[in-house]
């Protein structure tokens, strides 16, 4: 049996892990609700991660006494903008030029990971020494736990031991839910994802809405990459493909959550739990660990099966997901 401390640790790592993919999934939900299937989420998370890291590194080097809060603002903004630009590129290719969405998305993933690892490598070289950069001040600002302000006990740590972005993700999920399902703009956006011809005939600007949703969605997804570099690996860069696998999990989470932001909250933590559970199961070898890391994907497949068996219309993907829209097509 697990001890209280172990359970608390497991839950904490699940929540940190879940936060990364929750950002990725929330952005992708917004994007997909506009009918754009952006498979570039991993690439966009890379862009967000490297942009945040590079600007924080630049600031910490230039400023004589770097201020954590200023650095946080700079890197946060840079990460959002860089990711949104990735979304803009995707939008231009798929909406304006009507390129195939799947191919464009996959290409964006390759592009983002290449670009990020290229600059990550440069940063590591510039850092010299052991070849590992570290933006300690900025990372510290991201990781300042809310627990510092509130006195909590052991159990309280499960709720209050994270940096602000863990809470931002939850707030964002709620805001996104209210936007999509309670506002006029959200209704209009959903109609575009379901049936752009109908939205167009109703006088909604399909192109503009798709662009905005995809760019803002990419910006939000990119925050997942930022959270990963700043909090999860504490302001460093490693040229491995962890961000990419997290990005794919974020895409899987969108399906798991059946395109509903509130489901993404608990879904993300569940994925985190399933991902880390292997640490607490005795007798696993290195290879059998990997089998356990598959659990989130298996659960996603089960959800897909259940959804398709139940045939509930509200749980289906947006009806025109992945299709380009062209008004004068006959």
């Amino acid at each position: 049996m697990l001890s209280i401390v172990q359970i608390s640790q497991l839950l904490q790592s699940a929540i940190v892990f879940g936060t990364v993919i929750m950002f990725g999934a929330l952005g992708e939900i917004l994007t997909q609700k506009s009918g754009n299937l952006n498979l570039g989420v991993p690439g966009i998370m890379y862009l967000g991660g490297i942009a945040g890291l590079a600007t924080a590194y630049g600031y910490e080097h230039l400023a004589k006494t770097p201020n954590g809060f200023v650095s946080l603002l700079i890197s946060f903004t840079a990460a959002f903008i860089a990711s949104a630009l990735g979304g803009l590129l995707y939008s231009f290719l798929t909406i304006t030029l009507r390129a195939n969405q799947n191919v464009t998305g996959l290409t964006l993933t390759i592009f983002g990971s290449g670009l990020a690892n290229f600059f990550g490598g440069i940063l590591n070289t510039m850092a010299g020494g052991v070849g590992q950069i570290s933006v300690r001040t900025t990372s510290q600002a991201y990781r300042t736990a809310v627990a510092h302000f509130v006195q909590v006990g052991h159990v309280g740590e499960i709720f209050f031991s994270y940096g602000f972005m863990a809470y931002l993700a939850i707030i964002l999920a709620i805001v996104l839910y209210v936007f999509l399902f309670r506002t006029r703009a959200g209704l209009n956006l959903r109609s575009i994802g379901e049936n752009p011809g109908t939205a167009d005939a109703a006088g909604i600007n399909v192109i503009r809405n798709k662009y905005i949703a995809t760019c803002v969605g990419a910006g939000i997804s990119g925050l997942g990459g930022l959270y990963y570099t700043m909090d999860y690996i504490k302001g460093t860069w490693t040229t491995d493909s962890t961000i990419e696998s997290l990005g794919w999990l974020a895409v899987a989470l969108v399906i798991f959550a059946t395109w509903k932001p509130l489901n993404a909250i608990w879904g993300a933590y569940l994925f985190g739990l399933l991902y880390w559970i292997y640490l607490y199961i005795p007798g696993l070898t290195r290879s059998s660990q990997e089998l356990f890391k598959m659990l989130p994907y298996i659960v996603t497949i089960i959800v897909l099966l259940l959804v398709s068996i139940r045939k509930k219309k509200e749980d289906q993907p947006p009806a025109s997901l992945g299709l380009a829209y062209f008004r004068e097509e006959r």
Partner: peptide
């Protein structure tokens, strides 16, 4: 030109 998963009212107010 209707959105299947919307109600009549939602479709009417659309746009």
């Amino acid at each position: 030109k209707l959105v299947d998963v919307f109600t009549a009212a939602e479709n009417v107010t659309l746009g």
